[in-house]
Design a protein around this nucleic acid. Structure first.
Lengths: 195, 195
DNA sequence: GAGCGAAATGAATAGAAATTCATTCTTATG
DNA sequence: CATAAGAATGAATTTCTATTCATTTCGCTC
């Protein structure tokens, strides 16, 4: 097995374990077992437990941002863009359930030193939304008096809360498509100028 | 000092410490120091570290639910109710910052056994929203095709995300009133039937 | 298939912190 | 003010687990 493979294998295992138990309750030996390597092997690829988490963020979140930006680049209309963002975000949550669980939990932890880093990445992601809102206001589609800084949070929060529902319970009463439809519909009605 | 006082004093200290460091990074000795008691004293009032967290949930969240239900009982119009919920929720976040921090973090942890308990309480709280939506739909004010199960999440998520902004950064670009106005305005526009 | 460096192993170590408990202090009562 | 029950203390103990490292296994080349 190539070196890069094992690095990846450990990350995948760690994602699973962090996702299900949380960073602090996760044991290195849990991760090792999940990855089918010895405890010590992990330290050949990562400096320490914390480094595993950081690498996870670094490598995976960056991918998400690239992904969603690519999907949005296809589209001009800000109303459509908002819908696409919702759909894409929710799809990711379903497809990468374990990663989503780690994000859900760890983004909320106020562990000082990390906080900085995490928030930087995170802000990049959420700012995609305010960009869309801003564009829509400039072109006279969205109500100009609304504050993009609040809307982006509200919109992201709405999506994120649906993720939590899916992740923490295993509730699937609502499909991804229905949810994306409904949430973007509420917001589009809520923020659009009357025609 | 009466027994009940010390119990309370430790809970207050724990809220502060859990809020700032998170449950796992918080040391019993931190809590003891904050409460100005000896480490051992804490064990006269709580079984263990975990029990402190549970008691926090039990005693404090229950209060919040009672509070907000009382505030809502004053009002009939579901549109006003939604606004009041938003305002009340955000005010609580500001007034009980430390508690809000604990909730933000710990509600997301998937620590199995607790999960059950936390979710029960939590669901009670969020269901207040779906109750309002349902009432509005019955009286023909809100669009009947929208699913209260999604809206409640979206609405709560929007509020919660603003809380995170306030809590994790110390951002206060937006006032409580502005935020409550704007979020409930977006939702009311988004979910109301055209008149 | 012998020999070598790299990779992997997992038992042993070390450190951190939760919890205990023998001792000391407080308070209430006669 | 003597005394006992209840509270409080904090040093000592125990537990838990991240990390290390001496040893073994693997994969390659000649």
């Amino acid at each position: 097995m190539k070196k890069a493979d094992k690095h990846q294998k450990i990350l995948v295992a760690a994602t699973k374990v962090f996702g299900s138990k949380g960073f602090f309750s996760a044991r290195i030996s849990d991760i090792a077992k999940e990855a089918k390597v010895a405890d010590g092997t992990i330290y050949l690829y990562f400096h320490n437990k914390y480094d595993i988490l950081l690498t996870l963020f670094e490598e995976e979140i960056a991918k998400l941002i690239v992904d969603i930006k690519a999907a949005l680049a296809q589209e001009e209309d800000p109303r459509r863009k908002l819908y696409i963002f919702a759909l894409h975000h929710l799809k990711l949550v379903i497809e990468k359930k374990e990663l989503a669980e780690v994000l859900q939990m760890e983004l909320r932890q106020s562990s000082d030193s990390v906080k900085e880093y995490r928030i930087t990445k995170f802000v990049d992601y959420v700012n995609i939304i305010s960009g869309i809102i801003h564009q829509g206001q400039k072109s006279g589609i969205f109500r100009p008096e609304l504050k993009p800084g609040i809307i982006k949070r509200a919109f992201f929060g709405a999506l994120d809360e649906m993720s939590r529902l899916w992740i923490l319970n295993s509730d699937h009463s609502y499909t991804v498509d229905d949810t994306a439809d409904e949430i973007s519909s509420i917001f589009l009605n809520g923020i659009s100028l009357p025609t």
